[in-house]
C-alpha cells in the first residue's frame, strides 16, 4: 500500500496521543496544574493533530462531517466517533486536573478506556481488510495497541511500564513481521485465482490495461525492496524499542535521555508505520502482475 505521509502521521501521532491520554486518564503521572496542562496539551496536540492529518488525504473534505454516520458498520466511522468522544470525555477530566487539581477518576478511567478503544478502532480499519492480507489479522490491533501503550507510557514518563511495554511492543512487532510475511500467500489469492485462469495453468501479465499510472496502482501497488525493508525493520526496532530501552534501563535517568528516548521511539514508530503500509500488498496488485 502507498505509504502516504498523511496516513502515517495520522496513525502514528494519534496513536501516541491516545496512548498518552490513556495513561493520563489512569492518573499516570498523577499531575495537576501547569504540568498537567503540558501533558494534556501534548496528548491533545498529538491526537487532534493526527486526526487533522488524516483529513489531508480526503478528496472531498466538505463531507468529512458525514463520516460519523455509519458507526453501525464502519470502523472508520467508529474511530471518528470514539476519537471525538474520547477527547470530549477527557476534556473535563483534564480541566479538573489543570484548573481545580481534581482527579475525577471515574471519568479518567472512562477516558482511558475510550482512548484505547479509539486506537483499537483505528487498527480495525486496517485489520478488517481482507484485500490486504498482511493487515487482515488479529495481530494488527495488538500491534496498534502495543504502540499506543508503549508510546503513551514513554510520553507519560512511566519508566517501568515503558520498559515492559516497549519490550512487549518489540516482541509483538517481530511477531507481526514474521507472520505478516506469510499472510499474502496464506490468503490464497494469486493471479490464478484473481483471473480464474488457474484451471488452465500459470498466469502472467502480458499488458496492463493502460500504459500509464492509475489511482489503483499509485494507491495499492506500492512495492518495497527486500533490502530496504530489512533496513527499515532494523531502524524501526532499534530506534523504536532498543534505543529507548537502553536510555531508560541502562543509562542513568536524565531528561535529555528521556527526550532522546521519546524522539527515537517516534522515529522508530514512523519507520514501522511506513513499513506497515509499504510492505502490505493489496491483492489488486495481482491484476497488475505485481
Amino acid at each position: 500500500m502507498h505509504p502516504a505521509p498523511s496516513v502515517i502521521l495520522f496513525t502514528t501521532l494519534s496513536g501516541l496521543g491516545f496512548g498518552l491520554l490513556a495513561f493520563l486518564g489512569l492518573g499516570l503521572p498523577d499531575v495537576t496544574g501547569g504540568i498537567a496542562f503540558v501533558f494534556f496539551a501534548i496528548a491533545y496536540a498529538l491526537a487532534v493533530g493526527g486526526l487533522l492529518a488524516s483529513t489531508f488525504h480526503l478528496g472531498n473534505k466538505v463531507n468529512a462531517i458525514k463520516a460519523f454516520r455509519q458507526w453501525r458498520s464502519s470502523w472508520l466511522s467508529r474511530e471518528g466517533l470514539l476519537a471525538v468522544l474520547t477527547l470530549l470525555v477527557m476534556a473535563p477530566y483534564a480541566m479538573g486536573r489543570v484548573f481545580w487539581s481534581e482527579n475525577w477518576a471515574l471519568l479518567g478511567w472512562l477516558g482511558a478506556l475510550l482512548a484505547l478503544a479509539t486506537v483499537f478502532t483505528t487498527s480495525m480499519i486496517y485489520a478488517q481488510l481482507k484485500a490486504v492480507p498482511r493487515w487482515n489479522t488479529r495481530w494488527t490491533p495488538v500491534l496498534f495497541l502495543a504502540h499506543a501503550l508503549a508510546g503513551g507510557a514513554l510520553l507519560s514518563g512511566q519508566i517501568t511500564a515503558s520498559a515492559v511495554l516497549l519490550a512487549v511492543l518489540g516482541a509483538v512487532q517481530v511477531i507481526v513481521w514474521q507472520q505478516g510475511d506469510g499472510r499474502f500467500a496464506a490468503s490464497g489469492a494469486t493471479l490464478e485465482s484473481a483471473t480464474g485462469l488457474g484451471r488452465i495453468g500459470s498466469v502472467r501479465q502480458l499488458e496492463p490495461p493502460h500504459s500509464g499510472q492509475n489511482y489503483l496502482l499509485r494507491e495499492m501497488a506500492f512495492a518495497v525492496g527486500r533490502k530496504h525493508s530489512a533496513k527499515l525493520r532494523a531502524i524501526s526496532l532499534g530506534a523504536g524499542v532498543l534505543l529507548p530501552l537502553v536510555c531508560l534501563l541502562v543509562l542513568p535517568f536524565s531528561h535529555v535521555l528521556a527526550l532522546i528516548a521519546v524522539l527515537s521511539h517516534l522515529l522508530g514508530v514512523l519507520a514501522g508505520r511506513w513499513l506497515f503500509f509499504a510492505e502490505a500488498k493489496h491483492v489488486v496488485a495481482l491484476y497488475y502482475g505485481r
Binding site: 480526503l58 478528496g59 463531507n63 472508520l76 491484476y287
Partner: peptide, 21 residues
C-alpha cells in the same frame, strides 16, 4: 453527495473496481 473521498472503499475492494477521481 455524501462521499468524502477517503478511499477506504477502494482499499476494501479486492478487485480494483473503484477509483477516486
Amino acid at each position: 453527495q455524501d462521499c468524502m473521498g477517503c478511499g477506504l472503499c477502494a482499499w476494501a475492494c479486492p478487485y480494483g473496481a473503484r477509483e477516486l477521481d
